[in-house]
């Protein structure tokens, strides 16, 4: 069985962590033969390393997974898909190429840093020494997802500029974080449904959570969680 109760519990812990850390709301999964072998969320502020994007964190888990099972990294990566809420940035796109990941599914475009067509198209560029090109599937109804990222970026980065005071718009933060929560929960849904586009659910959830106060979001989320 791919997901157990402890897996779910672990997801909730990671998601709770995301909630309390104010990172950019991106969550991702690396799925190898219907099994999640890497999951990640941004850890940039936490690690003081601006390259700790969700994808890079998930890749580290994939490498650990391969190491523990003594599997060849390249062979595993070549049969692994990445599911991520936001288009991977230029750096992550190049990293996924270097690892020979063949498919990337994402929700909304990333107009600021996107490497799969938004800023540059590194995913299908002719770069013979930078791994293999990969296929990109854009998620449905990306408008709402874009809106959420924009909402997040309206806040100030607590580490970015130390001369400004740090003000959060709490409802928005939580709404955005709920999306991370959702992403961490949904693998189990989409695995059971043969990786049915989870973005559909993701979007309807975000629409719902955008309209209720954040504490209600949380409690309803946990209700839903226990229900599952």
């Amino acid at each position: 069985m791919n997901c157990s109760f402890t897996d779910l519990e672990e997801n909730t812990l990671i998601a709770k962590d995301a909630l309390s850390n104010g990172e950019v709301p991106v969550g991702c999964l690396l799925v190898h033969q219907n099994q999640v072998i890497g999951r990640g969320r941004n850890q940039v502020n936490q690690s003081k390393n601006a390259t700790r994007h969700a994808e890079m964190v998930a890749v580290d888990q994939l490498l650990d997974w391969c190491r523990h099972r003594n599997r060849d990294v390249r062979a595993v990566c070549e049969r692994t898909a990445l599911y991520v809420t936001v288009e991977p940035c230029v750096m992550c796109t190049a990293a996924l190429r270097l690892l020979h990941v063949p498919v990337v599914v994402f929700g909304c475009r990333n107009e600021r840093f996107g490497g799969c067509g938004s800023v540059l198209d590194v995913a299908s560029a002719d770069l013979p020494r930078t791994g293999t090109k990969f296929k990109v599937c854009e998620g449905h109804r990306s408008d709402e997802a874009i809106q959420m990222l924009k909402t997040f970026y309206k806040q100030e980065n607590p580490n970015g500029d130390q001369t400004h005071t740090h003000t959060h718009t709490h409802t928005h933060t939580h709404c955005v974080h709920i999306c991370v929560l959702c992403t961490f929960l949904f693998p189990h849904l989409f695995i059971s449904l043969f990786l049915l586009p989870f973005f559909l659910h993701f979007d309807s959830f975000s629409l719902f959570f955008n309209r209720v106060p954040s504490f209600l979001c949380l409690s309803s989320f946990f209700l839903l969680f226990s229900f599952l």
């Binding site: 230029v90 750096m91 270097l98 840093f113 490497g115 930078t130």
Partner: peptide
């Protein structure tokens, strides 16, 4: 490479000096 160059953009590097092209 592309990954490293973008990592430097994310890291807000001041200046980059390199020896040879790749």
């Amino acid at each position: 490479c592309v990954m490293c160059a973008m990592a430097l953009v994310h890291s807000r590097i001041g200046r980059v000096f390199y020896g040879t092209t790749s």
